[in-house]
Design a protein around this nucleic acid. Structure first.
Lengths: 152, 152
DNA sequence: ACTGATTGTTAGCAATGTCTAACTTTATGC
DNA sequence: GCATAAAGTTAGACATTGCTAACAATCAGT
Protein backbone atom coordinates (compact mmCIF):
# COMPACT_ATOMS: atom_id res chain seq x y z
CA UNK A 1 0.00 0.00 0.00
CA UNK A 2 1.38 3.31 -1.06
CA UNK A 3 1.95 6.00 1.48
CA UNK A 4 -0.72 8.29 0.14
CA UNK A 5 -3.51 5.96 -0.67
CA UNK A 6 -6.35 8.32 -1.44
CA UNK A 7 -9.23 7.10 -3.49
CA UNK A 8 -8.49 8.63 -6.88
CA UNK A 9 -6.90 6.65 -9.61
CA UNK A 10 -6.25 3.48 -7.68
CA UNK A 11 -7.04 1.66 -10.88
CA UNK A 12 -5.69 2.98 -14.19
CA UNK A 13 -9.00 4.37 -15.48
CA UNK A 14 -9.94 3.01 -18.84
CA UNK A 15 -9.60 6.36 -20.51
CA UNK A 16 -10.68 9.62 -18.94
CA UNK A 17 -13.71 9.05 -16.82
CA UNK A 18 -14.19 11.44 -13.94
CA UNK A 19 -12.45 10.33 -10.82
CA UNK A 20 -15.24 10.98 -8.39
CA UNK A 21 -18.55 12.71 -8.03
CA UNK A 22 -16.81 15.77 -6.68
CA UNK A 23 -14.80 16.20 -9.82
CA UNK A 24 -17.97 15.94 -11.85
CA UNK A 25 -19.63 18.58 -9.73
CA UNK A 26 -16.71 20.96 -10.17
CA UNK A 27 -16.62 20.34 -13.88
CA UNK A 28 -20.28 21.23 -13.98
CA UNK A 29 -19.61 24.42 -12.10
CA UNK A 30 -16.76 25.29 -14.45
CA UNK A 31 -19.04 24.74 -17.42
CA UNK A 32 -21.65 26.95 -15.83
CA UNK A 33 -19.06 29.65 -15.24
CA UNK A 34 -18.12 29.78 -18.88
CA UNK A 35 -21.78 30.08 -19.83
CA UNK A 36 -22.59 32.74 -17.28
CA UNK A 37 -21.29 35.74 -19.12
CA UNK A 38 -23.01 34.71 -22.32
CA UNK A 39 -26.24 34.30 -20.42
CA UNK A 40 -25.91 37.67 -18.77
CA UNK A 41 -25.32 39.34 -22.10
CA UNK A 42 -28.12 37.61 -23.91
CA UNK A 43 -30.59 38.27 -21.13
CA UNK A 44 -29.62 41.92 -21.03
CA UNK A 45 -29.76 42.28 -24.80
CA UNK A 46 -33.27 40.86 -24.85
CA UNK A 47 -34.28 43.30 -22.17
CA UNK A 48 -32.78 46.28 -23.95
CA UNK A 49 -34.47 45.34 -27.19
CA UNK A 50 -37.75 44.91 -25.40
CA UNK A 51 -37.51 48.17 -23.50
CA UNK A 52 -35.83 50.40 -26.04
CA UNK A 53 -36.18 48.75 -29.40
CA UNK A 54 -32.48 48.01 -29.74
CA UNK A 55 -29.39 46.91 -27.87
CA UNK A 56 -26.37 49.14 -28.27
CA UNK A 57 -22.92 48.29 -26.98
CA UNK A 58 -22.79 51.51 -25.01
CA UNK A 59 -25.94 50.60 -23.10
CA UNK A 60 -24.86 47.04 -22.55
CA UNK A 61 -21.59 48.34 -21.17
CA UNK A 62 -23.33 50.76 -18.83
CA UNK A 63 -25.66 48.10 -17.52
CA UNK A 64 -22.91 45.58 -16.95
CA UNK A 65 -20.46 48.08 -15.53
CA UNK A 66 -17.69 47.35 -18.06
CA UNK A 67 -16.14 49.39 -20.84
CA UNK A 68 -17.40 49.43 -24.38
CA UNK A 69 -14.40 47.68 -25.95
CA UNK A 70 -14.90 44.81 -23.55
CA UNK A 71 -18.46 44.52 -24.72
CA UNK A 72 -17.38 44.68 -28.33
CA UNK A 73 -14.99 41.80 -27.86
CA UNK A 74 -17.49 39.68 -26.00
CA UNK A 75 -20.14 40.35 -28.63
CA UNK A 76 -17.74 38.94 -31.18
CA UNK A 77 -17.65 35.74 -29.22
CA UNK A 78 -21.43 35.59 -28.91
CA UNK A 79 -21.73 36.12 -32.64
CA UNK A 80 -19.20 33.37 -33.24
CA UNK A 81 -21.31 31.12 -31.03
CA UNK A 82 -24.44 31.94 -32.95
CA UNK A 83 -26.32 33.71 -30.19
CA UNK A 84 -26.42 37.14 -31.79
CA UNK A 85 -25.96 38.82 -35.14
CA UNK A 86 -24.31 42.15 -35.59
CA UNK A 87 -23.15 44.49 -38.32
CA UNK A 88 -20.36 46.96 -37.86
CA UNK A 89 -21.41 50.11 -36.06
CA UNK A 90 -24.92 48.80 -35.69
CA UNK A 91 -26.77 47.52 -32.69
CA UNK A 92 -27.12 43.90 -31.82
CA UNK A 93 -29.81 41.34 -32.51
CA UNK A 94 -30.52 37.95 -31.08
CA UNK A 95 -30.65 34.85 -33.22
CA UNK A 96 -33.32 32.27 -32.55
CA UNK A 97 -30.90 30.45 -30.34
CA UNK A 98 -30.09 33.67 -28.53
CA UNK A 99 -33.73 34.46 -28.03
CA UNK A 100 -34.50 31.08 -26.62
CA UNK A 101 -31.51 31.23 -24.30
CA UNK A 102 -32.62 34.67 -23.15
CA UNK A 103 -36.09 33.43 -22.47
CA UNK A 104 -34.77 30.50 -20.51
CA UNK A 105 -32.50 32.80 -18.48
CA UNK A 106 -35.27 35.23 -17.77
CA UNK A 107 -37.44 32.41 -16.57
CA UNK A 108 -34.76 31.17 -14.19
CA UNK A 109 -34.04 34.66 -13.01
CA UNK A 110 -37.69 35.35 -12.24
CA UNK A 111 -38.17 32.12 -10.38
CA UNK A 112 -35.09 32.61 -8.26
CA UNK A 113 -35.96 36.23 -7.57
CA UNK A 114 -39.53 35.50 -6.58
CA UNK A 115 -38.37 32.65 -4.44
CA UNK A 116 -35.90 34.77 -2.51
CA UNK A 117 -38.49 37.46 -1.96
CA UNK A 118 -41.03 34.87 -0.80
CA UNK A 119 -38.45 33.66 1.66
CA UNK A 120 -38.41 37.12 3.13
CA UNK A 121 -35.39 38.73 1.50
CA UNK A 122 -35.49 42.41 0.66
CA UNK A 123 -35.85 43.07 -3.07
CA UNK A 124 -32.44 44.72 -3.52
CA UNK A 125 -30.49 41.87 -1.97
CA UNK A 126 -32.77 39.41 -3.72
CA UNK A 127 -31.87 40.98 -7.05
CA UNK A 128 -28.16 40.80 -6.35
CA UNK A 129 -28.27 37.24 -5.13
CA UNK A 130 -30.53 36.10 -7.94
CA UNK A 131 -28.04 37.49 -10.43
CA UNK A 132 -25.37 35.24 -9.02
CA UNK A 133 -27.47 32.20 -8.24
CA UNK A 134 -29.57 31.88 -11.38
CA UNK A 135 -26.79 30.29 -13.39
CA UNK A 136 -26.30 27.51 -10.88
CA UNK A 137 -29.72 26.12 -10.15
CA UNK A 138 -30.82 22.83 -11.62
CA UNK A 139 -34.23 22.33 -13.12
CA UNK A 140 -35.14 20.27 -10.11
CA UNK A 141 -34.30 23.07 -7.74
CA UNK A 142 -36.21 25.55 -9.85
CA UNK A 143 -39.26 23.34 -9.59
CA UNK A 144 -38.98 23.33 -5.83
CA UNK A 145 -38.52 27.09 -5.78
CA UNK A 146 -41.63 27.55 -7.89
CA UNK A 147 -43.63 25.26 -5.70
CA UNK A 148 -42.51 27.17 -2.63
CA UNK A 149 -43.55 30.48 -4.14
CA UNK A 150 -46.97 29.15 -5.13
CA UNK A 151 -47.69 27.67 -1.78
CA UNK A 152 -46.56 30.66 0.26
CA UNK B 1 -33.39 64.79 -26.37
CA UNK B 2 -31.01 62.36 -27.98
CA UNK B 3 -32.35 59.50 -29.98
CA UNK B 4 -31.27 56.85 -27.57
CA UNK B 5 -32.02 58.36 -24.25
CA UNK B 6 -31.58 55.47 -21.91
CA UNK B 7 -31.08 56.12 -18.25
CA UNK B 8 -27.32 55.73 -17.93
CA UNK B 9 -25.13 58.73 -17.78
CA UNK B 10 -27.75 61.37 -18.29
CA UNK B 11 -25.77 63.52 -15.95
CA UNK B 12 -21.98 63.63 -16.30
CA UNK B 13 -21.22 61.56 -13.18
CA UNK B 14 -18.86 63.27 -10.79
CA UNK B 15 -16.17 60.70 -11.29
CA UNK B 16 -16.85 57.02 -11.74
CA UNK B 17 -19.80 56.03 -9.67
CA UNK B 18 -21.75 53.04 -10.89
CA UNK B 19 -24.36 53.95 -13.42
CA UNK B 20 -27.19 51.95 -11.99
CA UNK B 21 -28.00 49.26 -9.49
CA UNK B 22 -27.75 46.66 -12.21
CA UNK B 23 -24.17 47.52 -12.93
CA UNK B 24 -23.37 47.26 -9.25
CA UNK B 25 -25.00 43.86 -9.09
CA UNK B 26 -22.98 42.62 -12.04
CA UNK B 27 -19.80 44.00 -10.61
CA UNK B 28 -20.56 42.11 -7.42
CA UNK B 29 -21.09 38.95 -9.39
CA UNK B 30 -17.82 39.45 -11.26
CA UNK B 31 -16.03 39.89 -7.96
CA UNK B 32 -17.61 36.74 -6.65
CA UNK B 33 -16.58 34.88 -9.78
CA UNK B 34 -12.98 35.80 -9.34
CA UNK B 35 -13.07 34.59 -5.75
CA UNK B 36 -14.81 31.34 -6.50
CA UNK B 37 -11.83 29.32 -7.60
CA UNK B 38 -9.80 30.40 -4.61
CA UNK B 39 -12.64 29.43 -2.33
CA UNK B 40 -13.03 26.05 -3.97
CA UNK B 41 -9.34 25.35 -3.59
CA UNK B 42 -9.07 26.47 -0.01
CA UNK B 43 -12.15 24.55 1.02
CA UNK B 44 -10.86 21.43 -0.68
CA UNK B 45 -7.40 21.79 0.79
CA UNK B 46 -8.85 22.06 4.28
CA UNK B 47 -10.86 18.94 3.65
CA UNK B 48 -7.90 16.98 2.33
CA UNK B 49 -5.78 17.98 5.27
CA UNK B 50 -8.54 17.02 7.64
CA UNK B 51 -9.20 13.68 6.00
CA UNK B 52 -5.71 12.62 4.97
CA UNK B 53 -3.27 14.73 6.89
CA UNK B 54 -2.04 16.60 3.85
CA UNK B 55 -3.11 18.20 0.62
CA UNK B 56 -1.15 17.12 -2.43
CA UNK B 57 -1.49 18.71 -5.84
CA UNK B 58 -2.25 15.36 -7.39
CA UNK B 59 -5.23 14.86 -5.09
CA UNK B 60 -6.47 18.39 -5.51
CA UNK B 61 -6.32 17.91 -9.25
CA UNK B 62 -8.23 14.64 -9.07
CA UNK B 63 -10.94 16.14 -6.90
CA UNK B 64 -11.36 19.21 -9.07
CA UNK B 65 -11.13 17.35 -12.33
CA UNK B 66 -8.22 19.37 -13.71
CA UNK B 67 -4.61 18.53 -14.51
CA UNK B 68 -1.78 18.85 -12.04
CA UNK B 69 0.02 21.73 -13.78
CA UNK B 70 -3.19 23.73 -13.60
CA UNK B 71 -3.29 23.14 -9.89
CA UNK B 72 0.34 24.08 -9.56
CA UNK B 73 -0.20 27.42 -11.24
CA UNK B 74 -3.29 28.20 -9.24
CA UNK B 75 -1.53 27.30 -6.01
CA UNK B 76 1.10 29.85 -6.91
CA UNK B 77 -1.58 32.47 -7.04
CA UNK B 78 -3.09 31.38 -3.73
CA UNK B 79 0.35 31.56 -2.15
CA UNK B 80 0.86 35.02 -3.63
CA UNK B 81 -2.45 36.01 -2.07
CA UNK B 82 -1.44 34.67 1.30
CA UNK B 83 -3.99 31.90 1.57
CA UNK B 84 -1.57 28.99 1.53
CA UNK B 85 2.09 28.23 2.02
CA UNK B 86 4.01 25.75 -0.03
CA UNK B 87 7.52 24.48 -0.53
CA UNK B 88 8.70 22.96 -3.77
CA UNK B 89 7.70 19.34 -4.21
CA UNK B 90 5.88 19.38 -0.89
CA UNK B 91 2.25 19.40 -0.06
CA UNK B 92 0.26 22.49 0.70
CA UNK B 93 -0.71 24.19 3.95
CA UNK B 94 -3.24 26.85 4.77
CA UNK B 95 -2.26 30.12 6.36
CA UNK B 96 -4.45 31.57 9.09
CA UNK B 97 -6.24 33.56 6.43
CA UNK B 98 -6.66 30.46 4.34
CA UNK B 99 -8.01 28.51 7.27
CA UNK B 100 -10.52 31.15 8.15
CA UNK B 101 -11.65 31.47 4.55
CA UNK B 102 -12.02 27.70 4.38
CA UNK B 103 -14.08 27.69 7.52
CA UNK B 104 -16.31 30.42 6.21
CA UNK B 105 -16.77 28.55 2.91
CA UNK B 106 -17.56 25.34 4.64
CA UNK B 107 -20.16 27.10 6.75
CA UNK B 108 -21.84 28.60 3.69
CA UNK B 109 -21.67 25.30 1.87
CA UNK B 110 -23.30 23.44 4.74
CA UNK B 111 -26.07 25.96 5.13
CA UNK B 112 -26.90 25.97 1.45
CA UNK B 113 -26.74 22.20 1.25
CA UNK B 114 -28.96 21.63 4.26
CA UNK B 115 -31.36 24.21 2.99
CA UNK B 116 -31.73 22.57 -0.39
CA UNK B 117 -32.24 19.20 1.20
CA UNK B 118 -34.83 20.63 3.58
CA UNK B 119 -36.62 22.02 0.58
CA UNK B 120 -36.93 18.49 -0.71
CA UNK B 121 -34.04 18.21 -3.16
CA UNK B 122 -32.23 14.90 -3.51
CA UNK B 123 -28.77 14.92 -1.93
CA UNK B 124 -26.82 14.49 -5.17
CA UNK B 125 -28.45 17.41 -6.93
CA UNK B 126 -28.29 19.40 -3.72
CA UNK B 127 -24.55 18.85 -3.61
CA UNK B 128 -24.09 19.96 -7.20
CA UNK B 129 -26.26 23.02 -6.83
CA UNK B 130 -24.74 23.98 -3.49
CA UNK B 131 -21.32 23.92 -5.10
CA UNK B 132 -22.41 26.54 -7.57
CA UNK B 133 -24.67 28.59 -5.34
CA UNK B 134 -22.55 28.90 -2.21
CA UNK B 135 -20.35 31.61 -3.66
CA UNK B 136 -23.27 33.85 -4.48
CA UNK B 137 -25.43 33.99 -1.38
CA UNK B 138 -25.39 37.04 0.84
CA UNK B 139 -25.23 36.81 4.58
CA UNK B 140 -28.84 37.87 4.70
CA UNK B 141 -29.91 35.02 2.49
CA UNK B 142 -27.86 32.57 4.50
CA UNK B 143 -29.68 33.70 7.62
CA UNK B 144 -33.01 33.03 5.95
CA UNK B 145 -31.80 29.63 4.75
CA UNK B 146 -30.72 28.72 8.27
CA UNK B 147 -34.00 29.85 9.72
CA UNK B 148 -35.87 27.77 7.18
CA UNK B 149 -33.86 24.67 8.02
CA UNK B 150 -34.41 25.13 11.75
CA UNK B 151 -38.09 25.64 11.43
CA UNK B 152 -38.73 22.75 9.04
C1' DA C 1 -24.30 69.65 -45.11
C1' DC C 2 -20.74 70.68 -41.72
C1' DT C 3 -19.02 70.19 -37.31
C1' DG C 4 -18.54 68.33 -32.93
C1' DA C 5 -20.16 64.82 -29.78
C1' DT C 6 -21.22 60.18 -29.29
C1' DT C 7 -20.62 55.60 -30.36
C1' DG C 8 -18.05 51.63 -32.09
C1' DT C 9 -13.86 49.23 -33.53
C1' DT C 10 -9.13 47.80 -33.42
C1' DA C 11 -4.75 47.04 -31.41
C1' DG C 12 -2.12 45.97 -27.67
C1' DC C 13 -1.35 44.93 -22.72
C1' DA C 14 -2.23 42.09 -18.42
C1' DA C 15 -4.18 38.48 -15.54
C1' DT C 16 -6.46 34.02 -15.19
C1' DG C 17 -7.21 29.33 -16.12
C1' DT C 18 -6.85 25.56 -18.97
C1' DC C 19 -3.94 22.22 -21.54
C1' DT C 20 0.43 19.29 -23.24
C1' DA C 21 5.18 18.22 -23.31
C1' DA C 22 9.50 17.97 -21.25
C1' DC C 23 12.08 17.89 -17.26
C1' DT C 24 13.17 17.30 -12.10
C1' DT C 25 12.43 15.57 -7.73
C1' DT C 26 10.67 12.38 -4.56
C1' DA C 27 8.97 7.96 -3.27
C1' DT C 28 8.58 2.85 -3.83
C1' DG C 29 9.99 -1.69 -4.20
C1' DC C 30 13.11 -5.02 -4.95
C1' DG D 1 20.88 1.68 -2.86
C1' DC D 2 19.34 1.66 -7.50
C1' DA D 3 15.98 1.61 -10.92
C1' DT D 4 11.49 2.71 -11.90
C1' DA D 5 7.14 4.84 -10.90
C1' DA D 6 4.70 8.66 -9.21
C1' DA D 7 4.35 13.40 -8.26
C1' DG D 8 5.59 18.16 -9.05
C1' DT D 9 7.45 21.96 -11.74
C1' DT D 10 8.41 24.79 -15.75
C1' DA D 11 7.72 26.39 -20.28
C1' DG D 12 4.82 27.51 -23.81
C1' DA D 13 0.32 27.59 -26.19
C1' DC D 14 -4.42 29.24 -26.37
C1' DA D 15 -8.90 31.35 -25.00
C1' DT D 16 -11.36 34.55 -22.17
C1' DT D 17 -12.17 38.85 -19.98
C1' DG D 18 -10.83 43.00 -18.51
C1' DC D 19 -8.40 47.62 -19.55
C1' DT D 20 -6.54 52.06 -22.30
C1' DA D 21 -5.37 54.57 -26.34
C1' DA D 22 -6.00 55.68 -30.95
C1' DC D 23 -8.80 55.71 -34.80
C1' DA D 24 -13.34 55.37 -37.60
C1' DA D 25 -18.11 55.87 -38.23
C1' DT D 26 -22.48 57.66 -37.12
C1' DC D 27 -25.58 60.98 -35.21
C1' DA D 28 -27.43 65.56 -33.89
C1' DG D 29 -27.98 70.38 -34.07
C1' DT D 30 -27.57 74.24 -36.35
Amino acid sequence: MTQHDLDPQTQPATHDRPTDARAEAFQGVREARSRELAEDYVELIAELIHDHGEARPVDIAARLGVKVPTVSKTLDRLAREGLITRAKYRSVFLTDDGRSLAKECRRRHEIVLRFLISLGLDPETAERDAEGIEHHVSERTLALFSAFVSRS
